[in-house]
Design a protein around this nucleic acid. Structure first.
Lengths: 253, 253
DNA sequence: CTTGAAGCTGCCGCAACGGCAGCTTCTACC
DNA sequence: GGTAGAAGCTGCCGTTGCGGCAGCTTCAAG
């Protein structure tokens, strides 16, 4: 089965011009060229094109893409890597949206106060999630890092998943009780719980402040985690994050 | 409070070169320029920069960004629009990741079969989510389109808002009861409810599958809708979306 | 008073295509 | 069999959004 250039263009959403360009620079030569000079593509090429477009969507340059596809040993492994990176990028957009939401909230506040454009607390916060989140670097050590972080935060080694799961749930319920009691996230009893968690975490492995903050964010952003929190009490995920952030701000700087 | 160029660069993650470029093309002039020619930025500029970077992340060109920021009537309204678009983009990446997952599954299958690179079912599916999802268009008719879709889904004409509102709430409550009873989103009783809604919707006006899916997504993403659902039961918005998506997958393809 | 960091203004260059122009090829229909 | 319209091809030049200098100025600190 072979497709002419316009067909491939239609399927993939890129222009024929782009496909010719990719041929020209050697990134995606067609499967064969007819005696009339026309380009024809087969399935292998489509799979390659998919990878190219995925990587391009992540902001990787074409020359680099060529390199990656070049010394790709296991195609499946590579695809899994790309998918993980896509999900990370999705999470970045999520934080970006959250950042914008915060800006909206602040502007609404100052509009209600009549305070005309008062000082923004920390201008850095205006840009959270905007940084491109170095894809090249993550091409190297993403899987290891993420997996480790997830396992570690959960506070469980892979061997004792079940027990750890129950313990974690119990912690979440205690936290939910504190919320229900009306304690704000930076109140003492909450912070002391968080402190216990933090010690358990760092006992497993060293964790930088940035890493800790990333974990805090993923309580809300990671789908499964968020679901786990929300199953116990609505808003609990955000509460946990707030508590961890307060902890980081107060005791880890 | 004013910040020199390097400070702004550090906070926002762009280079000073880029900031100068934005000044040069009139996109973001500094708040003022010192007698020495140095650029200084204030909060208004930071807010502007945030919007610029958000739009840039969505792939909008600089000239177009200038246009948008130029005839921006309500800043808050614009920010809300940007956030919605970010969430839409996030979902695109989500589907992209799903597409890649599907490719992985197919390759794994054919590897197990020993079938070396069998025919891919529908090559189009290889590229789902890759299409840039015309942002320009959504910048123009997003509000109108969404509103129309929203009204239509709610199953009410503008004249009978109140009655429709009550009816809709009743539907939501019935749905919440089904959730509480433990039915998954694709279970029969739920799907039959969704079917009723779907018929009511299509009776008003023709709705494509894509459009229907977009509506499903906006149950979660649209602030007001989401709030309306969540007010009845936590997680209900996501449940409605899941049910609609299951319906689309099972009966509309 | 010097010295290193931070600024400034050009100017050139590059990546990743878009848009022609000018020519060929292939059906498709009269 | 002739011709029109769609699809292909190959250059070549233009554009966007910066990155990278070079060459000069300015500023806070010791």
């Amino acid at each position: 089965m072979a497709w002419p250039i316009a067909e491939v263009a239609r399927m993939s959403g890129v222009t024929a011009r782009t496909l010719r360009h990719y041929d020209e620079i050697g990134l995606l030569p067609p499967a064969w060229i007819g005696s009339n000079g026309h380009r024809y593509y087969e399935e292998r090429q489509l799979l390659h094109l998919q990878q190219i477009l995925v990587l391009r969507a992540l902001g990787v340059g074409l020359t680099e893409i060529a390199g990656i596809l070049g010394d790709q040993v296991d195609e499946l492994e590579a695809l899994r890597g790309h998918r993980d990176r896509l999900l990370a990028e999705r999470d970045r957009l999520d934080t970006l949206a959250a950042t914008v939401s915060r800006t909206i909230a602040e502007l609404e506040q100052s509009r209600k106060d009549g305070t005309p454009m008062t000082s923004i607390n920390r201008p850095e916060n205006l840009f959270e999630g905007i940084q491109p989140a170095d894809v090249e670097a993550s091409l190297r050590d993403f899987p290891e890092h993420a997996e480790a972080a997830l396992r570690a935060t959960a506070g469980m080694s892979q061997a004792e998943i079940e027990a750890g799961q129950r313990e974690r749930t119990a912690q979440m319920i205690r936290l939910a009780e504190l919320t229900a009691a009306g304690h704000p996230a930076d109140a003492e009893p909450v912070q002391s719980k968080i402190d216990t968690e933090y010690r358990a975490l760092t006992a497993l492995r060293p964790v930088s402040v940035e890493e800790y903050r990333a974990i805090a964010r993923s309580c809300v952003e990671n789908e499964q985690w968020n679901a786990a929190y929300e199953a116990i009490a609505p808003g609990l995920a955000a509460y946990q994050r707030a508590a961890m952030e307060a902890y980081a701000a107060a005791r880890l700087s």
